[in-house]
């Protein structure tokens, strides 16, 4: 499988009160063409900043990509001008967000919002764009798309709005769809429908998906590979089978053992002892050591590298470092 997106040593920092917050602290991963990858981790570990970095939408002033490459189809997005990025966002890479209730513009009709994106990227006439928008609304499951075009967002439920967001995101045939916690704010029954829809559309249009979530249930539903993040770094990469059958990193094990709440709303998984490090704190050694039941002396002194186990597997933990294997 050839790679659609390659992220190399990406670092996105915030400066707040003269302190540097390493929101994304040197991450590397790839997304294959048509592949669905999940990015998991507790709240605050840098998942959203990773996705906004890819979009070139890191909040500024304050946030900045300080290092790395984001290569989409051979082009480093960080080399593009802002003007060139206008043509990438919404076209090559589309994004849907956690908050469907507030992500649509309240004063514009659904039709306006869809057609303006279509006209912007596909350069269609108003009439053609209308047809395309109606087609997209039908595709995401609206039975009366023509009527839906004239609706304002406030008349729709959260699930319906997220469908509109998906229709909008998919309307220009993106190569990559980034979904940042797309179902977190939805009812459980609606969650399943939205996930099903994303799965179906990605298969149909062979769109790659970067699915961001803290809910491992969602991961098993959709993803082929999983990237686990902690404190701005990747701590484990594994295929979905490996991840659930044989998780390596103590943090991953903690995530899997923790039972997500029934409502699926609780932002932080409770069963791992302790908290994520405070943003901007400086930690010596492994960032997870303070919460890790396997931590030994080396963990407090040195920071482990991301160890490549095999082609599809990597873990950042001294437990798997060969030098330590015989300790």
């Amino acid at each position: 499988m050839s790679n659609l997106l390659e992220i190399k040593n990406l670092r996105t920092h915030f400066v707040k009160n003269k302190r540097i917050i390493r929101a994304v602290d040197g991450i590397d991963f790839q997304i294959g063409k048509g592949e669905t990858i999940a990015l998991v981790g507790e709240s605050g570990c840098g998942k959203s900043m990773t996705s906004l970095s890819i979009m070139g939408l890191v909040p500024s002033p304050g946030g900045k990509i300080v290092e790395g490459e984001i290569i989409l189809d051979g082009v480093n997005l960080l080399d593009l001008t802002e003007k060139e990025m206008y043509g990438v966002r919404g076209k090559d890479i589309a994004m849907i967000f956690q908050e469907p209730m507030t992500s649509l513009n309240p004063v514009l009709t659904i039709g306006d919002q869809l057609t303006s994106v279509i006209i912007h990227h596909l350069k269609l006439s108003k009439k053609e764009a209308n047809l395309r928008a109606i087609e997209m609304l039908e595709l995401v499951g609206f039975s009366d798309p023509t009527k839906m075009m004239k609706n304002y967002p406030h008349r729709l439920s959260g699930g319906m709005r997220q469908r509109v967001m998906i229709a909008m995101a998919m309307s220009c045939n993106p190569k990559l769809l980034i979904a940042d916690e797309p179902t977190t704010a939805l009812d459980v029954t609606i969650q399943a429908q939205v996930l099903e829809l994303m799965k179906e559309l990605s298969k149909r249009f062979s769109t790659s998906i970067l699915l961001i979530t803290h809910d491992l249930g969602v991961v098993s539903e959709l993803a082929e590979r999983v990237v686990v993040m902690y404190a701005g770094q990747i701590v484990e990469i594994a295929t979905i089978e490996d991840l659930f059958d044989d998780p390596l990193h103590p943090y991953t094990i903690g995530l899997i053992n923790s039972v997500p709440s029934i409502e699926g709303e609780i932002k932080r998984l409770q069963s791992i002892e302790g908290n994520v490090p405070a943003p901007g704190s400086i930690i010596q050694g492994c960032k997870f050591a303070a919460r890790c039941s396997h931590a030994f002396d080396r963990c407090w002194i040195e920071e482990p590298d991301l160890l490549l186990m095999d082609d599809s597997r990597a873990v950042r933990c001294f437990l798997y470092d060969d030098e330590e294997a015989n300790v």
Partner: peptide, 25 residues
């Protein structure tokens, strides 16, 4: 607001985001 972020994510240029999506609100 989140819908401004949506407009940016859709690739609209800054002035469109501010005037078409922001100003009316």
């Amino acid at each position: 607001q989140d819908y401004i972020r949506t407009a940016k994510a859709n690739g609209f240029k800054n002035s469109t985001v501010i005037f078409k999506h922001g100003f009316r609100n």
